[in-house]
Structure formats: C-alpha cells, structure tokens
Design a protein around this nucleic acid. Structure first.
Lengths: 247, 247
DNA sequence: AGTTCGCCTTGACACAGATCAAAACGGGAG
DNA sequence: CTCCCGTTTTGATCTGTGTCAAGGCGAACT
C-alpha cells in the first residue's frame, strides 16, 4: 500500500518548533535525548506522508507547510478529520498503525521522532506524557467543535468557520496580536476545503465568491485571503462575536 | 446558569465499573485513595448533569444509563458531540470549566471523583495518567469517525451507523460475543438521535420506518430494537463488512 | 373508560446543496 | 509568446432533506 519516493533525510540540531510541541519545557538532558532520535523529512505538495493502516515508524511535528488527515469510504467519499499546521503533532504513542491517511497539502517539512525510543522517553519523562495528554485533549475539543460545523452549519457558515480557524492559527504563529486585517495564504485547494467541510468543491467555490462579493473577505488571486474584519467573519461563521474558542 | 435540584449523594464501597474506567489496574492502596474521593450521584431522564461553562467539581464514570454531551449555538441549533454509555468517562483533569453540556438521556447513575484530589492522584500515579491518555485517544478516534458520518453519509447511512455503534457497545457490555440477532433498548428519543446525526427528527423517523420496512431492523414498540443481521446493518451504514472500527 | 400529554409518524411542499456540463483562468514548459 | 493542463468559476437542473402541518399511539392520571 505504501509507495512513496524515498524522502530526503536531513539531520538538524535545533528544532524550530520547540515552543509548542512535545519538547517544550524539556530539560537539557531530555532535549539531548530527543535530538538523538530526531530527523527531518520533507514532502512535496500532494504527496502522501502516511497511508491509513500503515506501520507508524515515527511520531512527528509539522515544521512548515500544511498537512491533512483524511478518512475515505470504499466508494471514494472522503472526509478530512484534521488539519495540521506548523507546530501540530502527528501520530500516537502505543499505536502500531496509522488510523488516518496523512497528506501534504502544500510542501511540508516534518520533524520526526523514531517511535519506539520516543515511547520510552514518555515513560520516563512524566511531563512529556502530561503535555501529550494536554495536546490530545485540545485535539479532541477541536474535533468536537468541528462536529458542530459539519452537523449543523450551512455552506456559508462552514466556509466562514474554516477561514476563521485558519486565520486565527496563522495569526498565532506570526504572533500577530490584533486580528484586524489579517492576510494569509490559504494553502488548500477548493477540493481540500470541500473535503474538510463535507461539501462539494462547486459549493465551496460559489460560497467563496459570495463572501467576496459581500466584502467579508478579499481575494488576491485564488489563495491569498485578506480578512478586513475578523468579527464580521466570526459572525458569518455563527460563532460568538467575542471570538473565543470554547475551552 | 446552574439550577439543578439537589442530587442525592450516596457513598458506596464497590465500584461496579472498575474494569474499564480509570481505576482499572490500580493497586490496593490506590483503590483505597479512590474510595475516599468517590461518591455516587443519580439523575433522572432529561435532567442536565453539567452545563457548558460551569465549574467542574468532579470527574466521573457512567455506571448505568445513557448521558449525552451537546453543544448549542445561540440560535438553538444543537449538536451532540458524545454519547456516554456505562463505563465511559466524563470530565477533564486540569480543566476548570466544562466544555459541553452533559444531559441524562435516560435515568443515569454516575460514579464521581472529586476533581482536585483526583488530579493529585494522577500526578502521583503514572499508570492512571497513562490510562487517561489511552481513553482520550479512543475518544478522539470516535469523534473523528463521527466526523465522517456527519460530513459524508446520507440520512439512511447515518441512522444505520448510530444503531451499529450502540448495538456494538451494548453487546460489549453484555459480553455477548456473537453479533447476530442483537436486541437492545435504544435509550434515545428521536430528537436526541437527530441531534447526534445532524438531521431533523422527522427525517430520523422516516428513515427508521424505511429501515424497518426493508427488514434491516425490527421494532418492538418505539425503542426496543432487534438487529437480525449485523453485517447487513453495517453494509447500510457504508462501513466495511468486516465490522472493525478503524483503529 | 376517558382525557391529557409527550413522543412519534406521515404527508405536502420548499429549498439548499449536489450533480452534470462547459467555459475561464493561470502558471509552467517548450 | 503560445500551448497545455490542473484548478476554479459559473450555469442549469435535479434531489434529499428541511419545514410546516396534521394526526396517531401509548402511558399515566382522573
């Protein structure tokens, strides 16, 4: 099932995503051990990183680019179940096989940790286990918030919700504190958006045009988005205007 | 926001759900400490157990009955994001406030642990933390599987998926090893089902009637369900016929 | 036995989004 | 510059599910 072109491995000594990922709060000696089992891998847009059901050789953090987690039915219907932006974590300690297919939506660089030694590290380092639980709980909240989007929002609200989530994540990465006039590159095709939102790509396209016409977003090309007024976008998404994610 | 009738507290010494919940694999002294911070509470059908945003005084396991986790938009649209059957765990260590509203779908008994001391116990007992991570990962998988249901399945498949999940869970609780001719009490109203599936209650009713007419299920009254052929049900749900949940 | 109330079913119709089809756009290769 | 190919937009039509409305059924109470 796996047929990837051999990826380029490249050692590195300074993990640029330390601030949010597992390695946060680590002592020097723990970081040293992480270094030993760590390597970088890059993937080009469209490439499959891991197939559902494959043996997991590693767990990883996204360093740059966007990757997606998708589930597929036998007849080809697809649903994205996770969007992985820089600093997001992929993979499960203690699980032999991948549950979902991971695909590079744009060119992606990942910081991988060999799974077995990583698991040992967890067992001996309580605060890594602790951090892992925290991250998993956050992911669970995100998944549940998305269930509301999928189950109860209409097409326009779905699009607005997706844009709002990405805008916020991008702003956080850039340390932009004010959310007015956010501009960002939406690194997803219309098809990828439709897979995330449970829509067709035609509907996504139509609603993007509608949001543009109504001045909720400004499009520069197909992918570059400007959000002139974040609270307006959140309103379109049907969220509270205070903009807080439900904790 | 909280306005519950004072629940009846009742001490108990033997936790009947030890086998699957946090207390599994505990040593005698750890169990003793769990006993100290544990109490039972019961709720009647329809009662709200916890309101979203409320202070969490406890974490808990469902002992009997069915509870639901729901999210609501300001305009009243509701989405169920979790279904809690006996042995399921509710609440998050380290989170002050509840993220979702928990409601008793039937009469419910819960085994509660006072939150603060429970958190201390986690910090000093690695395998409880470990078990908690495992359970959270399982919940995450369940949530993501449900995203596929919400985003990509049609009404008939949604109903079949829900029935299949409940049937399996019930069979597991009863230690029924063969899945043929499962009979169970569906403890949800049509409205609760519609909240879970992102449908209206009319559509749920129509599709239940259709599945009955086609012999996929047999209805005894409104709630008692017999599934003559589990693989047929799974087929209707659009799942693989081997019946395995994606790991 | 009859009434009431909550839950469920069924029908008629409307509409959001899917489907099918075609054309426009844009970036890279030659 | 032009051609080509993948992506996106736009249009026309179809359909599954929502919406509104009426009626049925069963359990609890008088």
């Amino acid at each position: 099932m796996t047929q990837m072109t051999a990826p380029d491995f490249k050692e590195c000594s300074d993990c640029p995503i330390r601030h949010r990922a597992v390695c946060a709060r680590c002592e020097a000696d723990e970081l040293a051990r992480l270094e030993e089992i760590k390597y970088y891998r890059s993937f080009s847009a469209g490439q499959t990183i891991i197939w559902a059901g494959d043996q997991m050789q590693f767990v990883a953090s996204v360093v740059s680019g966007v990757a997606t987690l998708t589930q597929t039915m036998e007849d080809g219907r697809r649903q994205m179940v996770g969007l992985l932006l820089p600093s997001d974590f992929v993979g499960r300690p203690r699980r032999e096989r991948a549950s979902y297919t991971v695909t590079a939506a744009s060119d992606v660089v990942m910081c991988c940790f060999r799974r077995k030694p990583f698991e040992q590290l967890i067992d001996t380092t309580p605060h890594i286990a602790h951090r892992l639980l925290e991250m998993t709980l956050d992911e669970l909240d995100a998944a549940r918030e998305w269930m509301l989007v999928l189950g109860r929002k209409n097409a326009r609200e779905k699009i607005a919700s997706l844009l709002a989530i990405i805008a916020r994540r991008i702003a956080d990465l850039d340390d932009t504190t004010d959310y007015e006039g956010i501009s960002f590159d939406l690194m997803l095709t219309r098809e990828a958006m439709s897979d995330y939102l449970g829509l067709t790509l035609e509907t996504v396209s139509r609603q993007m045009s509608a949001l543009k016409k109504d001045g909720v977003i400004i499009l520069d090309g197909k992918r570059q988005i400007i959000v002139p007024d974040m609270s307006r976008l959140l309103e379109e998404a049907g969220d509270d205007s205070d903009g807080g994610l439900v904790d």
